Simulated scan of single mutants.
Amino acid sequence: MAPSSLLCAAASLWAKCIFSSTTSVARSTSFLPTSSICVKWLSTVVSAPPKRPLNAYMQYVLQQQPIMVRLHPEIRSVDVIRKIAQQWRTLSPAQKKPFEEASVKAREQFKVALQSYMAQLTPAQEAQQALDRKQKLAKRKAIRKKRELTSLGKPKRPRSPFNIYMSEHFEEARGATTQAKMKSLLQDWRNLFGHQKQVYTQLAEDDKIRYKNEIKSWEEHMVEIGREDLLREQTLSRKTRKTATKAKKKVVKRATGKAKMTKLKAKGSTTKTVTTSKKL
């Protein structure tokens, strides 16, 4: 009995030791950061590019925004930024100097960080970065152009029959989200009879006529103010064809006139020769 009890006691003691050691290891590792250094070394994913530094004004905004919100909790965020902008304009050069120096220092740190980031990129990643920048610039350019056209009053494009139907029945459509409502409306539109869709088809045709008249007047106004670069491609091509036709007519007219003059000169010289021979 004694040896067996001793053996059992030894086994339980050994199990306790193992359990306590694993628990202590787990507790000690719980304080380590989630991303280990070894994981970073083994990872092939390039870190995100450094963010561009803020200028002196934006640094001042970040400093003053929580103070302004605490002093004026009742005003909107837009009004908070306006108040901070007014304060910035009233600051003296000496008061602005710390923010400007901080901005210069941040730009220097950004240059170093950017060089370090670009050094770790592969050729494929550099090409992808260039493509992303190109797409972002194109998107910004499209947004700016759209805003400019809206400010210049460019007419809205004509709507399709389904768009007219959707705008009329969107409020009572089934679904909690916009996507669900549009899906239910599309299903209802497909279930409509032909004579029911004909109403919206006619409205769409009327909208096309409205757009055609409005866009013609708008483009004529753009030509008057010297913004022919905003005309549609089909209008430009039509205008180019008209210009080419006019130029061709002028060339033909000049050639015809020259031919007539040559013919008249030749006729005059022949008449003069006949008259001279008669005298002789």
Rank of each mutant, 00 (worst) to 15 (best):
E219F: 08
G153Y: 14
S36R: 12
A173L: 07
P93R: 13
D229N: 15
N191G: 05
R159F: 01
V223W: 10
E172K: 14
C38P: 00
V69R: 11
V80R: 05
K278Y: 01
E233F: 02
K197F: 03
C17L: 07
R70F: 02
G257Y: 00
M1Q: 05
V80E: 03
W218G: 06
I67A: 06
F110V: 10
Q187V: 03
R140L: 13
T34L: 14
S160A: 11
K146P: 00
T235P: 06
Q115A: 14
K40F: 10
V252K: 11
A102E: 13
V251H: 10
P50R: 11
S35N: 03
Q120G: 08
V104C: 04
P3S: 12
K105M: 14
E220C: 04
R254N: 13
Y60P: 03
T240N: 12
I75S: 11
I75N: 07
R238M: 12
K263H: 11
P158G: 02
R210M: 07
K154I: 01
Q95E: 15
F110A: 15
L192Y: 02
H169I: 01
L152I: 07
K250L: 15
W189P: 04
A15H: 04
K208L: 12
E224S: 13
V223I: 15
R144L: 03
S30D: 09
W189T: 03
L13I: 05
M118A: 05
K183S: 11
Q128G: 00
L42W: 07
S28N: 13
K16F: 01
R210E: 15
L42H: 04
V25I: 05
Q120N: 06
R140H: 04
A255T: 05
P158R: 04
A180M: 07
Q202C: 05
F31Y: 02
A173D: 09
S5F: 06
Q63T: 13
A255V: 05
R144E: 12
K134V: 02
P50E: 15
S12H: 10
E220L: 08
R147K: 11
E205W: 01
I164V: 10
P161V: 09
D206M: 09
L71W: 00
E126T: 04
K96P: 04
R70H: 07
D132E: 13
A2D: 14
F170R: 14
D79I: 08
L203V: 01
T23A: 15
K258G: 04
S43H: 09
L131G: 03
A10I: 08
W41N: 10
K267Y: 05
G268K: 02
S47Y: 02
K156G: 14
T243D: 12
